[in-house]
Amino acid sequence: MVCHLLSLDGVAEAPEEFFDPWGDEADAAAAEWCTTQDAVVLGRRSYDEWVRFWPGSDLEPFASFIGAVEKHVATSTPLDPPWSNARAIDGDLVDSIRELRSRPGGEIGVHASISIAQALLAAGVVDRLRLLVAPTIVGPGRRLLDGLPPMRLTPIRSEVTPGGCLLLDHRVALA
């Protein structure tokens, strides 16, 4: 499952800059996304940013979730500083995720890591795309869906929040 915060024009980079003010809607979406996940995949840059912030954060419920959940980090270098329940992915990213998906358990979430989400979507190993779209046009910035091959999405849920955000949940047809 890929969970991302986007602007209306698809920018996924630096959502803290366009979800302004960060509020109850973003918190509620993040809390809902976390209820079914027992593993998270992060890229190295996201890991480095998050390990400096989340272990000391009291922003709930995400701080408790991300602290406790199993974290798989796409990197070829040791995880320093270490973080509880975090491990480097050994080998090919897509093969590692396929193996992880074959294990019993809950969903595997991809948060914040644009390139990881794109690689897994392109490889056809993502079964669900959950987005919270801010009513903001950002302009420049990395977009989550740029460069992806065509794919069929089946809507599961769509909702407009009181603040004008779009909460979108789609099933992705797996390759």
Rank of each mutant, 00 (worst) to 15 (best):
residue 140 P to V: 11
residue 137 I to R: 13
residue 139 G to P: 09
residue 149 P to A: 04
residue 159 E to A: 14
residue 142 R to Y: 11
residue 155 P to W: 07
residue 149 P to L: 03
residue 144 L to D: 04
residue 125 V to P: 14
residue 135 P to M: 04
residue 133 V to S: 02
residue 123 A to N: 06
residue 116 I to N: 00
residue 154 T to H: 08
residue 118 Q to H: 03
residue 129 L to S: 04
residue 116 I to R: 01
residue 158 S to W: 09
residue 127 D to T: 05
residue 137 I to W: 14
residue 135 P to Y: 08
residue 152 R to S: 07
residue 124 G to V: 02
residue 123 A to F: 08
residue 135 P to W: 07
residue 152 R to N: 07
residue 145 L to E: 09
residue 137 I to V: 15
residue 123 A to S: 08
residue 134 A to F: 05
residue 120 L to Q: 04
residue 114 I to N: 06
residue 157 R to E: 14
residue 152 R to L: 10
residue 114 I to W: 06
residue 148 L to T: 06
residue 128 R to C: 00
residue 114 I to V: 15
residue 159 E to L: 13
residue 152 R to T: 09
residue 125 V to N: 14
residue 153 L to S: 03
residue 155 P to C: 06
residue 142 R to D: 12
residue 143 R to W: 05
residue 158 S to D: 11
residue 118 Q to S: 05
residue 135 P to A: 08
residue 159 E to M: 13
residue 121 L to E: 12
residue 161 T to L: 03
residue 143 R to Q: 05
residue 119 A to M: 10
residue 149 P to Y: 02
residue 114 I to A: 04
residue 115 S to V: 01
residue 154 T to L: 08
residue 125 V to Q: 12
residue 127 D to N: 07
residue 124 G to I: 00
residue 129 L to Y: 00
residue 122 A to C: 12
residue 133 V to I: 05
residue 126 V to S: 11
residue 149 P to I: 05
residue 151 M to V: 09
residue 154 T to Q: 12
residue 143 R to K: 06
residue 149 P to V: 00
residue 147 G to L: 12
residue 140 P to F: 12
residue 151 M to F: 08
residue 133 V to H: 02
residue 117 A to E: 05
residue 143 R to A: 06
residue 152 R to F: 05
residue 160 V to W: 07
residue 116 I to M: 00
residue 144 L to N: 01
residue 147 G to F: 11
residue 161 T to N: 09
residue 156 I to S: 09
residue 136 T to Q: 14
residue 116 I to P: 01
residue 128 R to V: 04
residue 139 G to S: 10
residue 159 E to D: 15
residue 113 S to R: 12
residue 138 V to M: 13
residue 143 R to G: 05
residue 151 M to D: 08
residue 145 L to W: 07
residue 150 P to K: 01
residue 140 P to K: 15
residue 116 I to G: 02
residue 122 A to I: 07
residue 137 I to C: 11
residue 143 R to H: 03
residue 138 V to F: 11
residue 115 S to E: 01
residue 154 T to S: 03
residue 151 M to W: 06
residue 129 L to M: 06
residue 149 P to F: 02
residue 116 I to W: 01
residue 114 I to K: 03
residue 156 I to K: 13
residue 144 L to Q: 01
residue 118 Q to R: 03
residue 156 I to G: 07
residue 136 T to C: 13
residue 117 A to Q: 06
residue 136 T to N: 15
residue 150 P to S: 01
residue 137 I to T: 14
residue 125 V to S: 11
residue 126 V to R: 08
residue 134 A to L: 01
residue 146 D to F: 02
residue 136 T to I: 15
residue 146 D to Q: 00
residue 156 I to P: 04
residue 127 D to P: 02
residue 114 I to E: 04
residue 137 I to N: 06
residue 159 E to P: 12
residue 147 G to R: 08
residue 158 S to Y: 10
residue 154 T to R: 09
residue 153 L to R: 00
residue 157 R to M: 12
residue 121 L to P: 13
residue 113 S to G: 09
residue 148 L to H: 07
residue 117 A to P: 05
residue 142 R to C: 11
